[in-house]
């Protein structure tokens, strides 16, 4: 999953310093904002792990945070000046102070990343097409629709769709014309069989 890191603090010294410490250790893009208000412009992010490092004790942009929480795994890190004082409105998942060491800051990110990667990451096999998938790609290249492919191979439309999905994932090619080029390059199909004007 994509990761977005935000540092929101009025102090440029703190923003830049914190970003420097993090980037020394992790390869990450960090968006630095000097006012909570600006977070609204990023509220459209979805499907990502979003780490928000927020200046504690100031008014937070709760609307934008809630919006982000709806569509992302959001981790809130409160950045306190001296002592951690939980009375403020927002509930932080983690805490930092300006006296946190570089090691502590880096550990924190590791912990968050582990928490965020709980979801299974399914592995693809070796990426080679199965012979059935080769049959399917041939027919796709010939311009057949899912229904026609299903009839020809005596399988259900549902199975055809699932083959197509696997083919696209394995090859990194989505368009019909792209798949046709692949089929011809790999001799699955003779160029004479198709009308290049139409398909490619």
């Amino acid at each position: 999953m994509k990761e977005n890191v935000f540092i929101i603090h009025r102090s440029e010294i703190i923003r830049k310093g914190l970003a420097l410490i993090l980037q020394e250790y992790f390869k990450m893009e960090i968006t630095q904002l000097n006012s909570a208000k600006d977070l609204s412009s990023f509220a459209g992010i979805s499907n990502s792990t979003t780490i928000l490092i927020l200046e504690a004790g100031v008014e937070q942009n709760t609307k934008a945070i809630e919006q982000l929480q709806k569509n992302n795994d959001v981790f809130l890190v409160g950045f306190f000046s001296e002592t951690i004082n939980e009375s403020a409105g927002v509930q932080y998942d983690y805490h930092l102070t300006q006296y946190s060491s570089a090691i502590q800051i880096q550990k924190l990110i590791q912990v968050i990343r582990q928490a965020g990667s709980k979801q299974k990451n399914h592995l693809l096999e070796n990426g080679e097409l199965t012979s059935r998938e080769k049959d399917v790609i041939k027919l796709i290249a010939l311009g057949l629709a899912n229904k026609e492919i299903a009839d020809k191979l005596f399988i259900s439309i549902h199975t055809v769709i699932s083959h197509r999905k696997n083919i696209t994932e394995k090859l990194g090619i989505k368009s019909i014309s792209g798949l046709t080029v692949y089929a011809i390059m790999n001799n699955l199909l003779d160029i004479q069989d198709i009308n290049p004007e139409e398909l490619i």
Binding site: L171, G172, I173, K174, S175, S177, G178, V181, Y182, M185, N186
Partner: peptide, 18 residues
Amino acid sequence: TNVEVKLSDLKSLIIRHM
């Protein structure tokens, strides 16, 4: 999306399959 897909396919074909 359509045009985007084709451009990405073009890169895939060159990088991975040609």
